[in-house]
Design a binder for these strands. Structure first.
Lengths: 244, 244
DNA sequence: CGTCAAATTGAAAATTATCAACGAGAGTGG
DNA sequence: CCACTCTCGTTGATAATTTTCAATTTGACG
């Protein structure tokens, strides 16, 4: 277990020096398993640790006071979670496991120590949070301005693409791993309507479904239907300071 | 013109040393006026500078390919704009002036120089972007899971509160400075429906309207109707490293 | 006074939610 | 191996919300 998950992720952006590798490995010294459905951070609870997701799929969500839930973001191995702890006394969002997962908890002081010693990693983290921000704004625009069908299609594409970043063997067929209720909470729809939209997308010939598996049968058209933009492309990191 | 706008903003969070003040002032050495309606950054254009808003109100937005627009965020003096330039070659969002404004452009290297010299400012910027992120997720949850009326109410409250941060004399009455079309683009509604929701909110006795002015006649109830959370409260910055 | 953007209103249509019911499959305890 | 229970997915009918379209009206300003 030499490389850290998060370092691998940053390594997709720019090459990480051995010294930086070592520093980042300190974030993943401890491991904690999380069962499907369990939360590692709950909205309004006093914040504690930050986490790196090592294995599994998780999500962040907010509860509204009429009891409905909005899923904000899906999380995959190598993602850093709970960054809001850097600013708030109480967590603004809940972090829950969508599948059995393993997380690596660390605390703010560990992070700030690393940033002090390796300024370039601080810059990389800013880049990382800008990418995350762009993904959030895409979702925002989707909720505000696209049809139910487009929003459901966007979730399918997002999940496929992020799973594919981890496992290049995944192509047109993948396991979604979300209930229709969860898709609804991510897209601002009811589970019933998600069901109808999936059926329609299937009838349009864009996907096929079997058990929990989705197959993209017309990826081009699906992307178009979803207004999809890949925010992990088009990066420009030429301005980063030199590694120390 | 001793203090910088951005330093004042960060100064609301924690006290800024004179050395840090001087460093931040370098971000605001140049000034550029922007007329209402003009854009300083356009979606898909090659990114250039970052900016600090010195005067006026601006917004960021995205255009969808059916021609509709989603407003992502309103910007006020002291806000940093165009941070996405840190990650992307092309801008993911458009930045436009809602009123005649003055911006201070600077470039990435200026910023990275400052961060290298003043690690605590880097940490503060992470805090700053977490606050912004929380505001984005609140808006996301509002779009996904709240009624049209609640979303319109939320925009009213957000504008009043942010204007009030700049000018403490503002209380229940303020100038909104947005067209109903702009409110619609922020809330994912049509201008027509925004009009009806404003009327309803007025009929419910929560606000009064006259010319461009809004008066909160029942602030408590308005907050409740909007599900409002103030993300500039409840901060915990005790972990920040010492100033250099 | 004329013009133009913005606000307002009504009526009809489209989208999405709600309610209610049923079916399929996975575990569980007997 | 058989009920039994649960969650999840599916479907139909109906209701609520929001959009669209088409006029007006209002107010600011040259």
């Amino acid at each position: 277990m030499s490389g850290s998950c998060f370092a691998e992720r940053l390594g997709d952006l720019v090459s990480i020096t051995p010294a930086e590798q070592d520093a980042l490995a300190r974030l993943e010294e401890r491991e904690r398993p999380v069962r499907r459905g369990a939360a590692i951070q709950r909205e309004n609870d006093r914040v504690g640790e930050l986490f790196i997701l090592r294995k599994g799929v998780m999500m962040t969500s907010m509860l509204l006071d009429d009891g409905s839930r909005q899923i904000l973001r899906f999380l995959f191995p190598g993602d850093m979670m709970g960054l809001s702890s850097l600013a708030y006394r109480e967590a603004p969002e809940t972090i829950t496991a969508l599948s059995d997962s393993i997380v690596c908890p660390f605390d703010r002081s560990t992070l700030s120590g690393i940033l002090a010693a390796h300024p370039r990693l601080g810059a990389l983290m800013m880049v990382y949070s800008q990418i995350e921000r762009a993904a959030l704004t895409d979702r925002l625009a989707a909720l505000g301005r696209t049809s139910a069908k487009a929003r459901v299609a966007a979730v399918l594409i997002e999940m496929r693409n992020r799973l594919r970043m981890l496992d290049k063997s995944i192509n047109a067929t993948f396991t979604l791993g979300l209930t229709q209720e969860e898709i609804g909470d991510a897209t601002g729809l009811t589970a019933v309507h998600v069901n109808r939209m999936l059926r329609q997308i299937e009838e349009d010939g864009l996907i096929a479904r079997a058990n929990g598996h989705i197959t993209f049968t017309n990826e081009r058209a699906l992307m178009r239907a979803a207004n999809y933009v890949d925010r992990y492309e088009g990066l420009d990191l030429s301005w980063l300071p030199a590694a120390r």
